[in-house]
Amino acid sequence: MDYIANNVDLILAALGQHVVLAIVPVILGVIIALPLGYLAVRYRWLYHPLINVSGLLYAIPSLALFVVLPGIIGTRILSPINIIAALTIYTVALMVRVVANGLNSVDPTITQAASAMGYRRVRRLFGVELPIALPVILAGLRVAAVSNVSLVSVGALIGVGGLGALFTRGLQLGYIDPIIVGIVLSVLLAVLCDVIIVLVQRQLTPWSRIGGRS
């Protein structure tokens, strides 16, 4: 593959941009979704509005969002911030429901037991509820991360797309090699994200893998 040898710098730059564009929104999205998910559980009347609105956000076509967003948040059309903002919205849309479901999955007798032991609310959230919800939250995070990795490529259509730039280039030149490289790297990146989250989950929640009695 002469293409790879001749374009190492370009491919690596695209890969680097792809990683940033995929990962930063995941981090931002989780930071925003955690409190929203908690609110949806804490105040039951907020649950349906929050879940429904986030579901609607997820239904907006990504390309449309990429195109409309600069007009809304006042960024330049070619700014990577557009992609980051759009993917953050998708992550939030997905993760609010996941966080709420994770917190709801905690057995209420356990949270009550925690209170009866003398846990105050905030410490109970971080010491008991979130850790127990973690398997559900991390399972959702795997979906969000993988979907972000693939959505970044769409950004290439508005000029900022990480590995997606290899697709557009391949199409414009009628040349298959960059497209294959783009696909392979994109899939590898998605798998890598997934594996990292699984490893983190194993490390953080050893208890969730032990089923039944030993």
């Binding site: 057995d107 007798t109 009550q112 037991a113 850790p131 127990i132 208890w207 969730s208």
Partner: peptide, 13 residues
């Protein structure tokens, strides 16, 4: 001290 039915232990600890 507080003891409940089914023990109510923390599964992650």
């Amino acid at each position: 001290g507080y003891v409940i039915q089914h023990a109510g232990l923390f599964p992650h600890r």
